[in-house]
Simulated scan of single mutants.
Amino acid sequence: MRHIKKMIGSLLFLAISISSCNSQPSQIQTPTDTLPIHIQRFDKALLQFIETQDTALEQELLKEYPAMLEITGKGILNLQSPAVPGFFDQLVTYYSEPTLKNLYEDAVHEYQDVSDIESQLGKGFAFLKANFPDMQVPACYMHVSGFNQNVLAADSLLSLSIDKYMGETYPLYQDFFYDYQRIKMQRPLVAADYLAGWLMSEYPFEGNENVLLDRMIYEGIIKYIVHLALPEITPAQLMGYKEKDYAWCTANELTLWNTIIQRKHLYTPDQLTTSKYLDDKPCTFLSDETPGNIGTWIGWQIVSSYMKENNVSLQTLMQQQNAQELLSQAKYKP
């Protein structure tokens, strides 16, 4: 019986995937061209300065990367403007800590060549631009945060911390992260996190962060759009799940939804309860087999149902601020 259940779950997952591909709303634009994306290597330039402490490089950094210095200082080091005396000294002190320095060097080595990521971003941002014509394509950078601020975004600027994508077997990760966290810390997810970070920057969450429905719909919209932009990334990868966990969710979708409704968690404005559904930690409060971030996964299913029922553009979807209205129009029936 267990074998049959697993097989049914896998077949159901396949059927849903095929159905989703075949029923894409006609208002979604699929571009034929890509955009030329070049990732600017702030991470390399800063490492050179950290290693040499050549004061001449300070001026080069200020000239080439003024915005990155600004948001790195504020977002990672709680420092003010680079113009403040002692800014670069504190920068050197922070990144010279031995463990962080080794991590920094490993990250730059691992990401010496990023042409594959630039190619993915070229396709991904071309998709976003086709569906959000007024959206500005950001200048893309890389930085190292020391497991701190993963995404840095400002006007027309987006940077990702590459030390968070060293692969789930990277030795240092064993001391700092759980298995369910490390599965997301892999190179195939770099481009996806760039796109998600920019969408969240351009369309920040405006609902009630303590209400599960509001959060799950917003997160589900982001996953839905990123998956369309980068279809080569499997839904399981995008969720940070193993394939067997994704198949389990598909096979138990109705039970999961009914449990949320029966426990009256969907609308209860309780931050602690809501966070349990969106945390990477396995949702064992629902069942021993429920993976983490199940709220986002269900939100993605609701959004997919909404887009099948309503032939709207992605811009209209992204601007939908009423989660209850979206749920009603989705006619969601797991």
Rank of each mutant, 00 (worst) to 15 (best):
M166E: 03
W248I: 08
F147Y: 14
I76V: 15
E58T: 08
L256W: 01
A130N: 13
P334K: 05
S304A: 13
Y165P: 06
M7K: 14
M142R: 01
M68L: 10
A126K: 08
V108D: 15
Q319A: 14
K123N: 13
L326S: 07
I225V: 15
M239T: 13
P235K: 08
C283M: 11
G240A: 14
K164T: 07
L100T: 15
I261H: 12
S20N: 12
G86F: 04
R41W: 00
T72L: 00
E97W: 00
Y246N: 09
A236M: 10
V312K: 14
A153K: 06
N322I: 02
D214F: 02
L172P: 03
A45T: 05
K129S: 10
K184P: 01
I302A: 06
D113F: 07
N293Y: 02
Y224F: 14
A323L: 10
S96H: 05
K74M: 05
L160R: 04
G124K: 09
L213Y: 02
P138N: 04
R187P: 05
I294W: 03
N322P: 10
D280Y: 15
T255H: 14
L230A: 07
L278Q: 13
Q112M: 07
D193E: 14
Q24G: 06
A126Q: 09
P204D: 08
P231V: 12
F13D: 15
W297T: 02
H265S: 09
N322Q: 13
